[in-house]
């Protein structure tokens, strides 16, 4: 039985979040198993199952080059900018 990763979008939620994994022999059973295991408490409005080996993950050894450069560009954040007194709706 293959391993599948399960993603659930909550009722009222905006995006699918990873909740765990299950085993199943095919996509139909994977969907049903995921529904049974992960949505018993009314959490879900939508469900994705993805074969685990279809997931391409970033290599932790590359974390520095992939994610560090984004850290020092504060000008991408609105808080970097001083809004002068008296200016509204900015």
């Amino acid at each position: 039985m293959a391993l599948w990763e399960v993603f659930v979008r909550a009722r009222g939620g905006l995006h699918h979040a990873h909740v765990g994994s299950i085993h199943a022999t095919d996509a139909e059973m994977a969907l049903e198993n995921a529904r049974d295991v992960f949505t018993r408490r009314g959490e879900a409005a939508s469900l994705w199952v993805v074969p685990s080996d279809a997931i391409v993950a970033s290599d932790p050894a590359d974390a520095d080059e992939l994610f560090e450069p984004a850290m020092d560009k504060e000008y991408r954040h609105p808080t970097y900018y001083e809004v002068p007194d008296g200016v509204a709706n900015l």
Binding site: M1, I22, H23, D36
Partner: peptide, 11 residues
């Protein structure tokens, strides 16, 4: 036959 089916039949 599988733990997943224990959950499914329970439901």
């Amino acid at each position: 036959p599988t733990m997943e089916e224990d959950v499914a039949l329970g439901n």
